[in-house]
């Protein structure tokens, strides 16, 4: 049975008719063509599909598209604004926080959510904050460095960075 839904994604309202069983990740990828969000498992373990739903980082493979009706979603495509990288993206770039890149969008969304809650996380808090995301390439060392970089950068220019990007 179809459901008419309206979801705000990266600031843009999208309306669509969807089946009940359609997962949010498939809505993003197949219906809207936002393929930056990846699928890495079937069992809610890997976090490759992480997006923000109402500001909270969630695994979009374990949320139904209909559950997002009327809500706000942010994906990796929403991190950079006006061609300017978000400090989290910059951190991953500067610190070699990625190799194959497949886990990276989800990892960055978790990092983004963590820094919203905790602008000055310790190494342990960073590792804890990204523990829902598997990476098979980096050994996590440089991901931690990337998040530290982003935290510093965001603390240095919080308002300015946001203003410029908006």
């Amino acid at each position: 049975m179809g459901h008419r839904i309206s979801v705000t994604i990266n600031g843009t309202v999208h309306e669509a008719e969807v089946e009940s069983r359609l997962l949010l990740v498939h809505f993003l990828r197949e219906v809207l063509g936002l393929t930056g969000t990846h699928i890495g498992c079937d069992t809610t373990n890997c976090g490759a599909c992480t997006v923000l739903l109402q500001g909270r980082a969630v695994k979009s493979c374990t949320v139904l598209a209909v559950q997002a009706d009327g809500r706000e979603v942010m994906t990796v495509e929403g991190l950079a604004r006006n061609g300017q990288l978000h400090p989290v993206q910059e951190g991953f770039f500067e610190k070699h926080g990625l190799q194959c890149g497949f886990c990276t969008p989800g990892m960055m969304m978790s990092a983004y959510a963590l820094l919203q809650q905790n602008p000055n996380p310790s190494e342990g808090e960073i590792r804890w904050g990204i523990s829902g995301n598997l990476c098979r390439c980096t050994g996590y060392v440089n991901i931690v460095e990337a998040v530290k970089y982003a935290a510093e950068k965001m603390r240095a220019t919080p308002a300015a960075a946001e203003l410029e990007r908006s």
Binding site: R29, T35, G36, E77, F92, L98
Partner: peptide, 21 residues
């Protein structure tokens, strides 16, 4: 030297097989 690969990967613009339709 920072990676030349990264800009497409950190913005969600990279195309993996499943992204082809």
């Amino acid at each position: 030297i920072k990676r030349r690969e990264d800009p497409r990967l950190i913005t969600g613009r990279a195309i993996y097989v499943d992204d082809l339709n």
